[in-house]
């Protein structure tokens, strides 16, 4: 069975790049556009990895991450946070929210793939 990756990202291009990249190497990709959608999708599908964008409309990525991690059923899922790294302290915030790793934008797809492979060999 192929590993499932949940991508929570509001920008269509970014979503598409991740989707195209991961599916080309055999991952199954579930997409969510907003924070709440992401939380629901995580609960519904219980993916093997979550890629969470930070700048989301409404509920931001940190809060979504916190909610998912608060759910005992979903706590085990590794969450990689994607941030623009505009302001210092973002990394601290990310880890405080409970994410397992972060990657800053703009990212090279190869680098993202490498990071994903770390968690989902």
């Amino acid at each position: 069975m192929s590993k499932r990756v949940l991508v929570v990202e509001d920008e269509e291009d970014n979503r598409r790049i991740v989707h195209d990249l991961l599916t080309s190497v055999g991952y199954e990709v579930i997409e969510a556009v907003t924070g709440p959608e992401g939380v629901t999708a995580a609960a519904t599908h219980v993916p093997d990895l979550i890629l969470m964008d930070i700048q989301l409309p409404g509920l931001n990525g940190y809060e979504a991450t916190r909610r998912i991690k608060a759910n005992p059923a979903l706590r085990h899922i590794p969450i990689i946070v994607v941030t623009s790294y505009a302001l210092s302290g973002d990394d601290v915030k990310a880890f405080e929210a409970g994410c397992d790793a972060y990657i800053s934008k703009p990212f090279s797809p190869r680098a993202l793939l490498a990071k994903v492979r770390e968690y989902l060999p």
Partner: peptide
Amino acid sequence: RTPLNGIQGYTEL
């Protein structure tokens, strides 16, 4: 960075 991410991303893919 967002659109740039798009450009770089797609280009790499």
